[in-house]
């Protein structure tokens, strides 16, 4: 069963001795449902990764970096998870995110989606969906609404969208949400 897009799974392991970009590795590419499950069943669950590691799933041709041509004007819908939720919700929410991407759940705004990242950190884990144009409000809001619903988040849960530019230059710990 072919997917609309070919996707690349990336892995990031924080090794302070090396340049940031060298810690980011392409694992493999896939463009069928069957290959997705073969990969997913083969790798460690996100909740089992050590602190400082990330998984990223991005469309082939887009790197999971702010600098990539298709990311630099974009931003991300950000889900922050308190530490105790790692072993309860993290894997379920990350898998649902992956299914939204490969299943093209954002309809006509799917082409605005670049990819998704899960950051495993000692304080707070984060899951985010990266979109290409932060100023494309219609697309950003549609993607956010569908995503929040798919994750089954309660209506009172607030999720924020941050431009990568803000995230990259944030002085305090929390970049402002648009």
């Amino acid at each position: 069963h072919h997917l609309q897009n070919r996707w690349v799974l990336w892995f990031f392991k924080n090794d302070r001795g090396r340049a940031w970009r060298d810690n980011l590795q392409q694992i493999t590419k896939f463009d069928t449902v069957e290959d997705f499950w073969a990969l997913y069943s083969h790798i460690k669950l996100a909740s089992k990764l050590s602190a400082g590691c990330d998984y990223a799933l991005f469309k082939d041709g887009i790197e999971p970096t702010w600098e990539d041509a298709r990311n630099k004007r974009g931003g991300r819908w950000l889900i922050s998870l308190a530490k105790e939720r790692r072993h309860i919700d993290l894997d379920r929410l990350w898998l649902e995110t992956l299914l939204c991407l490969i299943g093209e759940s954002f309809e006509e705004f799917g082409q605005e989606v670049c990819g998704a990242v899960v950051n495993i950190r000692s304080k707070k884990d984060k899951i985010s969906v990266w979109t290409q144009e932060a100023e494309n409000q219609k697309a950003v809001l549609h993607i956010g609404r569908v995503y929040k619903e798919r994750l089954g988040l309660s209506t009172k849960t607030i999720i924020g969208y941050q431009t990568h530019a803000d995230t990259a230059t944030k002085s305090n710990t929390v970049a402002k949400s648009k």
Partner: peptide, 18 residues
């Protein structure tokens, strides 16, 4: 053009089929 969309239910069923 056409868009290839997979519902989550279908994707999860594919996971369990041999």
């Amino acid at each position: 053009g056409t868009r290839i969309i997979y519902e989550r239910k279908f994707l999860l069923e594919c996971k369990n089929s041999p």
